[in-house]
Amino acid sequence: MRYVIVFIILFINWVIWSGLLDLFHLSLGVISCLIVTFMSHDLLFKRKTFKWSDISEAFRFFAYIPWLLYQIILSNIHVAKIVLKPEMPIDPDIVPYQHKLKKDISITTFANSIILTPGTITALIVDDKFYVHCLDKKVAEDLLTGEMEQRVAKVFGEDK
């Protein structure tokens, strides 16, 4: 099952990136996609079976992106305000943050979201602890309320 899904995803990418629809290029694409699917099919999906909950997860992830874009615009305005002031009011520090997520993909999404939200970057990940570099104290308190972690947990179905 996952061979077919990986092959279809790769072939769509081939058609978009080559942009040519004649027989020669399409057959080249089929051959190279088959080879890549045979060699590295387990990189994209680790599970062998297919679940319907994966699709609803993908839809919830797409619903999460607009909120993330709004946060990115807020964080850029925050950084622009700090940088363009002559006295530069910053008070940086590294704070630890304990999280409860389990899946790899949710941890990755959460770490990427922390980097894109106002005034914080993930500096180090050890087991279930993030070390977060914060630009000032107020931003650190906003992060430690854990609102974003609940959102990410809801997206990947871990909020029980």
Binding site: I72, V79, A80, I90, I115, L116, I121, H133, L135
Partner: peptide, 10 residues
């Protein structure tokens, strides 16, 4: 670290 705050987002 602070420089990356500006560059990673901007």
């Amino acid at each position: 670290y602070c420089r990356m705050q500006a560059t990673g987002k901007g």
